[in-house]
Amino acid sequence: MLRKVTLLAAALVLVGGPALAAAKVREPNEIAFSFEGPFGRYDQAQLQRGYKVYREVCSACHSMNLVAFRNLGDAGGPFFDPKYPNPNDNPVVKALAADTQIGDIDGETGDAIKRPGIPADKFPAPFANDAAAKASNGGVAPPDLSLIAKAREGGPAYIASLIAGFGTPPAGLTVPAGLNYNPYFPGDVSANWTGDHAHTPPGGFIAMAPPLTADQVTFDDGTKSTIKQQAEDVAAFLMWTAEPKMEERKHMGFSVLIFLILFSGLLYASYRRVWRDESH
């Protein structure tokens, strides 16, 4: 009995890990992403659509400093093509890189120049430096998006809910100048709420204006470009940028677990055989 209790207690310590006692905020919507679960994989078409939303909308303000164009052609990435195991040879990746202008130093003259991108280049940032990003965005630099899906409680579901979840603020809520109300954004709006204090609206004020409008991005695969579609696609893309090795990880995990289970079985059989004549 006590052994079971101890085991249970150990398990409880595990689940009792870091939990946030959040102020009132709307829970992210349930979204069935293709990459969930132990066998989940990225949906390549969705990643491509998500990349387009990122490139045409998000990248106007947000940097993505950890991702290079070549990553787009890596296994599991949006433009992976088995014909080009080296993503630097992938023509789609090359074309996407060449579409951008990268700041560089001319090796001959030492002058600052702009040149077309190559697959080895990281995604160019929208602002020259942090101060410029702050100056253009009301004093706070827009967060880098490389890891955002892992850096926010709720992950991609939270991101999709947030960027598609603006809507009109409830009557009785004064939205401060330069900010926007969003029920999914952690914060506290009670100081700006004139209504019943038992029913303060959930969420907080976010500096980002509603970024998405219907049909703003035209999807090459003909998918209807609703706000919800754009939001989910870009959230999936951001999950990929945050965790590009996820497919490799789950794939290897499966083999490792099969091996360990068989190995444990063998060890158990050995244990029974070694101990068969000994009472204990």
């Binding site: 677990l257 360990l260 289970i261 444990s264 060890l267 244990y271 070694v274």
Partner: peptide, 15 residues
């Protein structure tokens, strides 16, 4: 052999 078996089970949790 008993420790080895327990280690292997522990590695499953770890994995």
């Amino acid at each position: 052999v008993k420790d080895g078996f327990a280690m292997s089970l522990f590695l499953i949790l770890f994995a």
